[in-house]
Design a binder for these strands. Structure first.
Lengths: 161, 161
DNA sequence: TTGCAACTTAGAATTATTCTAGCTACGCTC
DNA sequence: GAGCGTAGCTAGAATAATTCTAAGTTGCAA
């Protein structure tokens, strides 16, 4: 039961930590921001600004789209959110990621789902650094991101039927 | 001198190969397409549609933006071009890549330059597959792309001065 | 409690990309 | 070499994502 207990508290906790950090970064805690952070911090689906906007609209019918972007931008600038962009078919919007642990992404070719893949570190391995030294002399690597492309469990299952 | 000679012919050669493949794919060779392919095939800078459009305008003042997109789209559909999307500051457009050998990308955090890094294959290693099996059960990997983030030679030099 | 900088809002502006409709011309066929 | 069908071209409108602007509002430090 340890896993479930941890999962149950982590969403609220993460929201609180994020709000505290927002404040610590000198940003004001407005009702809109609190709602955005609460929704966003527990969402591992890499939502777009549009996604969040639509889910917030019932509670905040007057909320502006710009507020969602502004808040996500503030979170990103404060290092509390990441930005993921993946080539997609059409009209692919930026996706935001509340997970600040080092991780990679697995992307489903069929449905576009994005899944976090934990990584110990994004620091380049000695091997990668060496290879780069040959391929791009003078380039100094800071981090290596990976994108695993393929089919998610659900889509694999469906297409094999 | 071998390198220079090879570089000098490869651009024209690659354009010819690409044009031949375009035709083979049942697509018509119009003057606009020929110009786009010639320009694009020898460009390792991962140009945007805008880049290409502006460089073509002097020779084709009447060319439509849609033609550039259509042609790049046709090339991509025929497997002769790739699409690269990278999170950037603002208004970041899709970048197109004529290199169809398996490769990764190194991206400069400062100037946004994108450099190809040759790879033997993009197929997942057994280690990666195993790790994924734990992190995302049921996900079947087809390819692993890497993005090396850091500073290009020019920017590293400039910022260390 | 007050003051003001930071925030929110609506809506316009900008940027990237796709769509549409009508004209044009590539390239197969004879 | 001419005719023809269709894919392609063009201008411009439409759509989508994101940012900007100006004016009113509010969190929160003092």
């Amino acid at each position: 039961m340890r896993v479930i207990a941890r999962a149950a508290t982590s969403s609220l906790e993460r929201a609180d930590v994020m709000l505290r950090d927002l404040k610590r970064a000198g940003l004001k805690l407005t009702p809109q921001r609190i709602a955005i952070v609460r929704l966003f911090s527990g969402d591992a689906s890499h939502p777009t600004a549009q996604d969040l906007f639509e889910r917030l609209r019932p509670s905040f019918p007057s909320m502006s789209f710009a507020t969602v972007y502004n808040t996500l931008d503030a979170l990103a600038n404060a290092g509390m959110a990441g930005l993921v962009r993946l080539p997609g078919k059409r009209g692919d919007a930026a996706r935001f990621d509340p997970n600040r642990q080092p991780h990679h992404h697995a992307v489903c070719d069929e449905c576009g789902a994005v899944i976090d893949i934990a990584a110990g570190s994004l620091a380049p391995s000695p091997g990668a650094t060496k290879k780069l030294r040959r391929a791009a002399p003078g380039f100094s690597v800071r981090a290596v991101e990976r994108i695993y492309r393929g089919s998610c469990a659900r889509c694999s299952r469906r297409s094999s039927q």
